[in-house]
């Protein structure tokens, strides 16, 4: 079932056109890997999906409903904020909030959101209990229950990234995006993060993962998009992308250049 559809996303920074008409769709429960050389626009695409950048052109449909249209009226802050909640984003360098414990990092945004509900006053206890229960479950899921009250600065990079994933999940996004989640990590720490992604994929979380981990992409992603200079040069099943008879020469040489 189609969850997300992107049509003709274009984005320029000044004179540089970074996205030159990106279109793809994503089914619910699918894991999509986006690969491509540095500077091809992968980060910019994820930022557009998360409304950190506004595309110059294009439309986004979520669940069949138009969520963004560049030619429509400019959305206000509150509207963007609401739309943004449909997505989560895990950054390359984690961006945890250093002054909060792991558990507080998970609960902060959901609690602020709950406080905006009209019936918050009457149901405060219930809301908070629900948020904390969910956060506890998420910490268990990423294997960091023991670090519940630790501060981010005391964690390894891999642990911080797992907290960041749990924090993104605490908002229950429809689609979770990852921007090279392991490239700031020492090699021995990437596995623990990839394992979390693996288990999320097996639970049918809808995910878009920008990654340079080809083995991981081949194994976990059902589909691969190869970006090349702002366009999608390949979009197909990962078996095809990483298989012997990959139809796209540039993709083939790109995968070859990374795996060697």
């Amino acid at each position: 079932m189609e969850l997300l559809k992107i049509e003709n996303y274009k984005k320029s920074f000044g004179a540089t056109e970074v996205l030159k008409g990106i279109g793809f769709s994503l089914d619910r429960g699918e894991t999509l890997a986006i690969i491509g050389s540095s500077g091809s626009g992968k980060t910019t695409l994820l930022r557009c999906l998360n409304f950190l950048e506004t595309p110059d052109e294009g439309r986004m449909y979520l669940d069949g409903k138009l969520l963004f249209d560049a030619s429509g009226p400019r959305a206000g802050d509150a509207e963007i904020r609401e739309k943004r909640l449909r997505f989560g984003l895990v950054f390359q360098n984690f961006n945890l909030f250093p002054q909060y414990t792991v558990f507080e990092n998970l609960c902060l945004a959901p609690k602020l959101l709950a406080a905006e509900r009209p019936d918050y006053r009457q149901k405060k206890e219930a809301y908070l209990a629900e948020i904390e229960e969910k956060a506890t479950g998420l910490l268990d899921k990423v294997g960091l229950t023991a670090k519940r009250d630790a501060y981010p600065c005391s964690l390894s990079g891999g642990q911080q990234q797992r907290v960041a994933i749990a924090r993104a999940l605490a908002n229950s996004p429809d689609i979770l995006c990852f921007d090279e989640p392991t490239s700031a990590l020492d090699p021995e720490l990437t596995a623990e993060v990839l394992n979390v992604l693996r288990s999320l994929a097996s639970e049918n979380m809808t995910m878009i993962v920008v990654t340079h981990e080809m083995k991981f992409a081949a194994e976990v992603a059902s589909r691969v998009i190869f970006m090349d200079e702002g366009v999608i040069a390949f979009d197909g099943p990962s078996a095809e992308a990483f298989g012997e008879n990959c139809p796209n020469e540039r993709l083939k040489s790109f995968i070859g250049s990374i795996e060697k």
Partner: peptide, 20 residues
């Protein structure tokens, strides 16, 4: 990144300034 992490989590500018 601190501002963007807050934004992506649905926080308002004011919340990001005061809470983060």
């Amino acid at each position: 990144g601190q501002y963007e992490a807050g934004q992506v989590l649905g926080m308002t500018k004011k919340q990001i300034f005061f809470k983060v």
